[in-house]
Write a protein that binds this DNA or RNA. Structure first.
Length: 490
RNA sequence: GGCGACGUAGCCAAGUGGUAAGGCAGAGGACUGCAAAUCCUUUAUUCCCCGGUUCGAAUCCGGGCGUCGCCUCCA
């Protein structure tokens, strides 16, 4: 049974979507005025993994992630660069996909833009005005917070609490300092659209309410985002949506914890952020994703190079086992049955057990840290099995296939490694250049042949020299009982 | 000031009443011509501190210390 921690109730709850077998998910996407940083990447990876697991559980998942392409920061940045705001956001949306693809994030079913949904937003605001939840004031439109009874239920605060913060914006036009903008009157020459209240643009919170309803209907099962969006963003979304439609907006609210640097929140205002693309210059994307999933999604995650490095090392252990499995399965006819082997292990039982443990971990509010531990347990079993198995035992090979299928299942959910159609790991070289890698393969055959001759003659200086020099080039040679293996040091 | 989270080995981290998972790093051994990979063994008598509840607590309660977050754009 899948349990999900719901910010709204502060508890883990049994997950039951509105409709059997179908899940509607909405995740707040980035404001596109810059490349994404690691803090932006965490919710992407976390909710992508949530989505993958729900699919694994057999749900049909409809997934929507917006881009905020109309916003003060975009307007200011565009002005600085001398481009149009929507040109700027278009560029960063393209760049966003490069980073997201590297991290193996599945595309959403819809990636709506604010700029393409203005008329729906205007209609929604009109509805709120008609219902008495919003009012126009000199070209702006505000939401009447005190009119909405449940205000504060997500973030757990009262009106007094909010005022006690005393950092509410001073604005003469508002009837109440807590009211927030649904529509902002455009400044001279600024990006704007026509509306019943004159030229202007939408406030930040309204876009998510409108687009969530537009693309997912009234039954939104999961709404996700960073913990810092709980208040005011998500609180305001609830107010707008429930005031307008008179029914529960979202069933499960999920929020990921922050990435920190030296234990402080990574944020643009503190200037302690690291762009995903800069991190990827030093580390493999698989390692970044692995690292982001190594801690439970609601806990803070502290970042520095040494930590990421240690995860990259750990990644190799998973990868080695995967490659060893592929190597031993080379040319194996998959039609052979999965039965007992000669090693005395009851492998099918082991596979069932690991598969169950993995699902139990993920069922418990997506405990990826535990799920990864199960994967490592499995790696150990694979290595032991590989060591003991008889090379000619076809049944044992069938067993390897069982291990491999579990690897593929774990990976499908966690999304760490990229694979080709046959389930083999996609190597960096393959991705970069297929033809070159073919040439390298043939050159390596020659080099290995020559080195083997030297080894036969016990010319260790030559043999080791070749190995050392290849290592300098980033190629690892291993002399194994099954022959010489080589791979790129990634 | 209000609200909330967290504190488990050198590092990362799971575990919310039954006697401390997993990974990285380190040590010893096996295998190897030497390595690499892998396997075996090993690394917290103890979970920030002090009290309490309990047959039993890292886990529950009270107090303290420390760190961080939200209350303002922020994933």
């Amino acid at each position: 049974m899948l349990k999900v921690y719901n910010t709204l109730t502060g508890k883990k709850e049994e997950f039951k979507p509105h409709r059997d077998g179908q899940v509607n998910m909405y995740v707040c996407g980035p404001t596109v005025y810059n490349y994404i940083h690691l803090g932006n990447a965490r919710p992407l990876v976390v909710f992508d993994t949530v989505r993958r697991y729900l699919i694994h559980k057999g749900y049909k998942v409809k997934y929507v992630q917006n881009f905020t392409d109309v916003d003060d920061k975009i307007i200011n940045r565009a002005k600085e660069e001398g481009v149009l705001p929507l040109e700027l956001s278009k560029k960063y949306i393209e760049e966003y996909f490069k980073d997201a693809d590297a991290l193996n994030i599945m595309r959403a079913d819809y990636h709506p833009l604010v700029s393409e949904n203005i008329s729906d937003i205007i209609h929604f605001i009109q509805l709120l005005i008609e219902k008495g939840y919003a009012y126009e004031a000199e070209g702006d439109v505000y939401f009447k917070v005190r009119k909405f009874e449940g205000y504060g239920k997500l973030s757990g605060r009262s009106f007094d609490d909010m005022l006690a913060g005393a950092r509410v914006e001073v604005n003469e036009k508002k009837q109440d300092p807590l009211d927030f903008a649904l529509w902002k009157k455009a400044k001279e020459g600024e990006l704007n659209w026509n509306s019943p209240w004159g030229e202007g643009r939408p406030g930040w919170h309204i876009e998510c309410s409108v687009m969530a309803h537009k693309y997912l209907g009234d039954c939104i099962d999961i709404h996700g985002g960073g913990y810092d969006l709980v208040f005011p963003h998500h609180e305001n979304e609830i107010a707008q949506s429930e005031a307008a439609l008179g029914k529960q907006f979202v069933k499960y609210w999920m929020h990921n914890g922050f990435i920190t640097v030296n234990k402080e929140k990574m944020s643009k205002s503190l200037g302690n952020f690291f762009l995903v693309r800069d991190i990827l210059k030093k580390f493999r994307p698989e390692a970044v994703r692995f690292y982001l999933l190594s801690t439970h999604y609601r806990s803070p995650l502290d970042f520095d190079d040494e930590k990421l490095e240690s995860f990259q090392n750990g990644l190799r252990r998973l990868e080695n086992a995967w490659e060893l499995l592929d190597e031993r399965l080379e040319g194996f006819d998959k039609s052979d049955s999965l039965r007992d082997d000669k090693t005395g292990n009851n492998v099918p039982e082991l596979l069932t057990e690991k598969s169950l443990s993995f699902e139990q971990a993920m069922d418990d509010d997506f405990n990826t840290a535990l799920a990864i531990a199960v994967w490592f347990d499995l790696v150990k079993e694979v290595n032991i099995f590989l060591k003991r198995m008889d090379e000619n035992d076809q049944k044992a090979k069938g067993m390897l296939l069982g291990f491999k299928e579990l690897f593929l299942m774990f990976n499908e959910v966690l999304g760490i490694f990229k694979t080709d159609d046959t389930g083999k790991l996609k190597s960096k070289a393959d991705e970069d250049n297929m033809q070159n890698s073919n040439l390298i393969n043939r050159l390596m055959e020659i080099i290995i042949d020559l080195r083997q001759k030297a080894r036969e003659e016990k010319d260790w200086d030559t043999a080791d020299g070749i190995r050392d020099r290849l290592k300098e080039l980033g190629i690892i040679l291993e002399d194994t009982p099954q022959g010489v293996r080589w791979k790129l040091n990634r």
